[in-house]
Amino acid sequence: MEKYQNEYNTTTGLEEAEKVLTFAVGEQIYGIEIPYVIEIIGIQHITELPNMPNFIKGIMNVRGKIIPVMDIRSRFGKEEIPYDDFTCIIIISVDDDSLGIIVDRVEEVINVTADDIADTPDYKSVNASKYIDYIVDMNGGIKLVLDCRILIETKDVATISED
């Protein structure tokens, strides 16, 4: 876990304001740094793949590109809910690897500065929270900014506590 500790130290040293796209999964607000986000699309037809983990919903065709789709709810061990008009797919890209993430609804884009980052030095040591890059406390809410790289590189289901 020391590795993540180090990462934490470097990534939280935001020198300039970072734009973060926030979205809701249940009551919790999460964020993804804008540079990772390719686009946001409504829910669409997803082709199922056989014998995949529960959170891999399948693949979809976005203008000729095949993109795998993951449901962030089941990825974080939450109960799945039926998709509705608010359900969105956020397409992120890390090193040319694309991934669609199904979220309950997209909120807004916020400007995060170093001052907004909550001082919570210990959370990285909890294995389940390794997806969280840093925590933002602003506009009266806690927002968990995800580490897209780890999200795309690991394949296990993990739970993120909402406390």
Partner: peptide, 18 residues
């Protein structure tokens, strides 16, 4: 298949691509 899916051995399921 997108390389992301290779982590889940998608090709072992009997499908080679799409």
């Amino acid at each position: 298949f997108p390389s992301y899916l290779n982590k889940f051995d998608v090709k072992k399921q009997g499908i080679s691509g799409c």
